[in-house]
Amino acid sequence: MRDLSVALSCCVLLVVAGGCGGRGSDVKRAYEEMDAAYEKGETAEAKVRVVKEFLARFPDSEFTVEAAETAAYHLGEELARPAEADVLLQELTDRVRSNDVRRGLAFARLPLLAKLGRPAELRALAARLEETGPLSYSEASTLGDAAIEGGAWDLALTAYERALTFLTPDAVTVEFEKSKLSEERIQRLTRRRQADALAGKGWALANLARRDEALSVFAAAREVDEVLYTGNTQSATGSYRGRTLLAAGRLDEALEALAPEALFGGDAQTRDAFRAAYVARHDGKDGFEAFSWATRERLARSCEDFTLADYGATPRTFSAVRRGEVALLTFWFPT
């Protein structure tokens, strides 16, 4: 869930790059104008406004789902107005004829229903979607994430099990045929998806009181997960595994599992679990700050040096730019 914004911007980019023809040229122009205005939008409110204006003009186009997902993300996640987002998606659904677009809109509603605490509707919508066609990887993964957020653990389990059936390099190659990804990218993507789906499956199992199975699924997730420089994993495995160990009272293991995420950038739930494990292990929170800092120092890795050109084609070596100061290094992707 944490990289939803990125996933969305990449979707938007792919759609623009993919292009469209025929009667869609007006829509395409309007979409591109909207995209430019969206980028300029300084606040979530402003972004939502331009996307909604576009959707009001062109409710039923090949851009509907992406635009609706974007609006729903800003409304539901950033502005904490999921009810408003859900109404928008329902109204759009009524104005759309294409079954594919209606299906896409239904998937966009799943996380909103979870957030709104309406698990019965979440389950009913998921069942309807299963009836209208088999779930793809991203559909299964969206359903799994929503089911986790809504606490519908059995639904989450079947969704991630479904997602895992797609995760062979062949299946990923077929899906990305048009994007011409390198073999290495496809392997990375496959591993990434496996790690995500295994993490979700394990967390569902842990919450269904099947803790031992959960821990063996997390072990499998760690095999395929990529570990960032800081010890963080790209999937939620570290956090879910640590919270499962905490619930099992295996406190030292929980602290070790939670530390990379809790200390190097994880979410509030992971940080809370780390603190809870420490308090339980040491019978109080005395020394927690010192312990955290010492653990951080122990786990931190040195930054490898590199040289890249700036936009004037001058080669820049990171260590020379940094000159022993504190550095903020960002990898970005223009959308």
Binding site: V6, V227, Y229, T230, N232, C303, G324, L329, T330, F333
Partner: peptide
């Protein structure tokens, strides 16, 4: 080297050249 698969991803590097923080995505 940095294993970045999601954009944006940011790292904070301390004066000793150690990576002390990672942040994936931006909200």
């Amino acid at each position: 080297v940095f294993k970045v698969g999601t954009f944006p991803t940011s790292f904070l590097i301390d004066r000793n050249g150690r990576v002390m923080f990672a942040h994936v995505g931006f909200r």
